[in-house]
């Protein structure tokens, strides 16, 4: 049983990075596809399309920060379950917000082609999703401090 909990602990330790990387990759691919399409139909402003399409890359960075905060001198039965719970749940948050951020960025890029003046405000939903990722990051850091070492 102890070995199983230790295995879960290691799983939870790396989950924020792995799931965050998947979310970032997926989100950047969605946003990047929209940016590439928009560049075909635009005479300028390519940088801003590419720039916003990279917004979901923050999720993997948050995942790395969470992993370092969860890192213990030893992973054992006492802290395995906590590492698993915090790591996996925060990882799924990064995965989900990364993908959804890519989707809303694709919509924002598409909409701002029709009405360039809404480019800034159309990024608001993506910024809110970023805020949710930050919530998950901050509270994972808070909880990481109370894991028995």
């Amino acid at each position: 049983m102890n070995e199983f909990v230790v295995a879960l602990g290691w799983f939870g330790l790396f989950a924020p990075v792995a799931l965050g990387a998947i979310g970032s990759a997926w989100g950047c691919a969605l946003g990047g596809s929209a940016a590439i399409g928009a560049m075909l139909d635009s005479d300028g402003g390519y940088g801003r399309f590419i720039g916003v399409s990279l917004m979901p890359s923050s999720q993997v960075i948050y995942g790395i920060v969470i992993m370092f905060s969860l890192q213990q001198q030893t992973v054992d039965a006492a802290n395995g379950a906590a590492l698993f719970g915090i790591g996996v749940l925060s990882g799924f948050t990064m995965l989900f917000t990364g993908i959804r951020q890519g989707e809303v960025l694709a919509s924002a890029i598409h909409a701002s082609k029709a009405k360039p003046e809404i480019f800034g405000i159309s990024l608001a939903p993506a910024a809110v999703l970023e805020g949710f990722s930050v919530f998950a990051l901050v509270f994972a850091l808070v909880l990481a401090g109370s894991i028995p070492s």
Binding site: S33, A34, A35, I36, G37, H110
Partner: peptide, 8 residues
């Protein structure tokens, strides 16, 4: 996504 955003 790329196709739709490439259409004006």
């Amino acid at each position: 996504i790329a196709l739709v955003t490439s259409l004006p």
